[in-house]
């Protein structure tokens, strides 16, 4: 464990908690893409299958459980508890255009052709594109509440910190996970234009992000 990965995990946890609390306390999921949240729940489900078979550390197990519980709880809030506030007309990204290529690629490019390894690879590739329905929804509605932009900021920051973690691990222990690194770079690139808007607009104190 290094400081970049720890800060990355904390940033990821903060993002997930921000989103959950925003929906739970405002009793509304307006402006939130339910499709992205379903994809994230799928990412955690396919990545943490080894939750009960291989024990790494208390931290590892606890974080996996927390991520799984909060992601499914968020999907529950969006599609069941507060479904009347779910803006399905704006959440129209065709997720099959993500799932099919990601599934195909995970069969082609993986470290080991075994179910658990292919599912892990699937989760890595899927995570890199899972935010696209949310970003697409924001461009479609042309705006986002500032709490939603804080969620996206910490979510984007988490994988950027993981990139620093991989640089660190490469230089200190020769660790290099090509699939995770390439996907992490792609994932972080998708946030770049959002990061620019976040810094130039939201941090200037605007109540919400309105796209030009």
């Amino acid at each position: 464990m290094n400081v970049f990965r720890l800060l990355g995990d904390v940033s990821h946890l903060v993002a997930i908690i921000i989103l959950f609390l925003k929906i739970f306390r405002s009793k509304s999921c307006a402006g939130i893409s339910g499709k992205s949240q379903v994809l994230f729940a799928l990412v955690f489900t396919t990545r943490y299958l080894d939750l009960f078979t291989s024990f790494i550390s208390i931290y590892n197990t606890v974080m996996k459980v927390v991520f799984l519980v909060l992601s499914y709880a968020t999907v529950y809030l969006i599609y069941l508890r507060f479904r009347s506030s779910y803006d399905s007309e704006s959440d129209t990204f065709r997720v099959e255009f993500l799932l099919v290529p990601v599934a195909g690629l995970s069969f082609l490019e993986n470290y080991d052709f075994t179910p658990i390894e292919i599912l892990w690879t699937f989760s890595i590739y899927l995570e890199s594109v899972a935010i696209l329905p949310q970003l697409f929804m924001i461009t479609k509605t042309g705006e986002a509440e500032s709490i939603t932009t804080h969620y996206l900021f910490f979510l984007g920051l988490y994988r950027a910190l993981y990139l620093a973690n991989w640089v660190w691990r490469y230089h200190t222990e020769g660790f290099f996970d090509q699939i995770a690194v390439v996907s992490g770079v792609v994932q972080t690139i998708f946030y770049c234009d959002f990061f620019y808007l976040y810094v130039t607009k939201v941090l200037k104190g605007n109540s919400k992000l309105t796209l030009p």
Binding site: S54, N60, M63, N165, Q178
Partner: peptide
């Protein structure tokens, strides 16, 4: 192909 590494990352 990467050697069999323990997946210690989240």
């Amino acid at each position: 192909k990467l050697n069999e590494k323990k997946k210690d990352e989240l």
